[in-house]
Design a protein around this nucleic acid. Structure first.
Lengths: 197, 197, 197, 197
DNA sequence: CATGAATGAGTTTTCATTCAT
DNA sequence: GATGAATGAAAACTCATTCAT
């Protein structure tokens, strides 16, 4: 049990080191020794806790997705844990997504990396599919409070999440201070809320 | 003169070989020898025509962007070369973008790769910024036929292009046959056209 | 602590392997794999202990210079560690330099190589400058026991060391058994000693 | 006949291009294309006029040695073509060697390169042996005007030429403006002349 | 003769992974 | 469990040389 805990701590430590590395360089440019140095452990140890570099990545993807799922759950818990049809609630939940997820630069950078790996790697893609499926489901529940047509809900939630990810991409790729991602996001949110309210 | 043509042809040949490689594996996984094999030439030749692997990539990015800019220009030329305020014209132009760009799987796959490289590589990012800037400009001109408020045009065109790219991403990442990208795109187009018409 | 020793040992082993290689071929013709083979280690190991081929060379130059500085220091230590004005002492010290340094064929061969590299490489040149500066200083101290004019000491010590190196060069370049380097050196030594005594 | 002349001109042109390259970089760092570019000819042509890179070098060595032999011959011709026992003549001839050969930086640089190649390459070494043999012979003739003992002449001429080459080396290797090669050379010349006069 | 395209062997370097201690 | 030494495959790149046109 105690061993297990140490194990888990070490794995988290390593996985968080990978996160720090990915802020600065691509997964490919990040060597096992880079991760080890960032984690403050011997690089040989990484192969004790993980079978390969890929396994660190897969674990990391779970970790980063869980981190934001938990943040969302926590945010929701602070609001009684229920999705409300309230206009203000919907404004707030979109604001949360905008500020904490879409405009989180480090997160976006890392996700561009994960997209790229996922586009060639089935295991990574499966994780993305699951995470995006859940996020789409969350958005469905939100707009489902206002719209009854299931088809419309399905389409809109997918479109919205794709749009969020497109904006996350552009917030990294486009010249900073010129693209005004925050403003665009707010405008569209407003537009959507007006449309469905 | 004849020489110049051989030069250009070889460079195009190499760059198209890179394209074929990028459909299957990442730029990093694609070795100089892979590209050479795909192009059917000796690997030393690649360094004869290009100073480095990165230069092949940069040339490729120009090539692929030009390819689609030309397709757009050609499409437009067939329609008198002018952007019209006609409802059908706008429907058609969005259909063109949807079918030929956003839902072009190979193109999307390659662009996910370019995004990732661009997120760490300034030269690549600059090329993306230019290309997206132009595309946003094109969309601005289209919706500018219907909307007069400059700010709204700016925001909507940016939002639309980001959304298109988000959809391109999801068409690659999400389970095929399940995400219904085509339908979602058509629905949103319809929605936008109705909104601005 | 044990680790540190392994480190140093391996580095010495590699540096000595380079020495053996340089007896046979130039630094440029000596590949990392050649050095590794000579050292009896895997070639990857060389990059574990040294960051680059140049760093091996720089370390080697320090090594070979230190080796002969130590031999000189040791020789001197055996003679009470002091430079004497004794005629026999001066004869002996010149003999030491002649036999152990100037006429040491392997050493001379390697130094021709280092000269060549140093003529294009600043770091190598700096090491040569330091080593020759010290050697000139040593000769100054020896002849300073007999001559009081500082200018004369400076000039003579520089001239002597340049002459020694020219003789080292010729002992490698000129047909063996024909140039009689040993005899020439002895004659000049004798001449110098007579002049200053 | 005309062809032969064109051939020779081209070969000289190439060989002079190599000289210019060797001022700046080592023979190893100098590529066939570098030489071709410096000569203003197509690189394929070098293999028409020379069988290999080594042959260019060997031809170059002949060229550079001849150049200075001719300069010496010409200088001598201007002085009636005979070596004189005149003190001033000896002063002048040493001055010529000092200024035009030993202190000629480009020449010295190139010779360090040739020494190094010659220390591993028999053909190059043979050329050096011949050239130095001739130079030593010249010096023998000069000091032979003053000294009658053949053995002494042999030793002194060899020692002098070795010393000149050592000084050439140090004029390249040692910190410029610090070693005072010119002064040292002049002092020793003076010393030698006084000794033998 | 001239050109420049093509070849392919060879170089240094990187790094995930293994493993003895 | 931890350490760091060792392995070896693979990468990008260089370049003398060849050769068809």
């Amino acid at each position: 049990m105690a061993r297990k805990r140490v194990d888990t701590e070490r794995r988290v430590q390593i996985v968080e080191a990978l996160h720090k590395c990915l802020i600065v360089k691509s997964f490919n440019e990040t060597s096992i020794k880079d991760i080890a140095a960032e984690a403050g452990v011997n690089h040989g140890v990484l192969h004790y806790y993980f079978s390969s570099k890929e396994e660190i990545l897969l674990t990391y993807i779970d970790y980063i997705i869980d981190l934001y799922k938990e943040q969302y759950a926590q945010w929701l818990a602070e609001r009684d844990g229920r999705i409300s049809a309230d206009r203000q609630f919907i404004i707030d939940i979109f604001t949360f997504m905008r500020e904490r997820i879409t405009l989180n630069k480090n997160l976006s950078k890392v996700f561009i990396e994960i997209w790229e790996i996922g586009s060639y790697n089935k295991k990574v893609r499966a994780k993305l599919q699951k995470a995006y499926g859940e996020w789409i489901q969350n958005v469905s529940e939100i707009i489902g409070k206002k719209i009854s047509n299931k088809k419309t809900i399905d389409i809109m939630s997918r479109a919205l999440v794709a749009y969020f990810e497109g904006m996350a991409l552009f917030s990294i790729i486009m010249p900073p201070g010129d693209f005004h991602a925050s403003e665009i996001l707010a405008w569209v949110e407003d537009y959507v809320i007006k449309s469905i309210d």
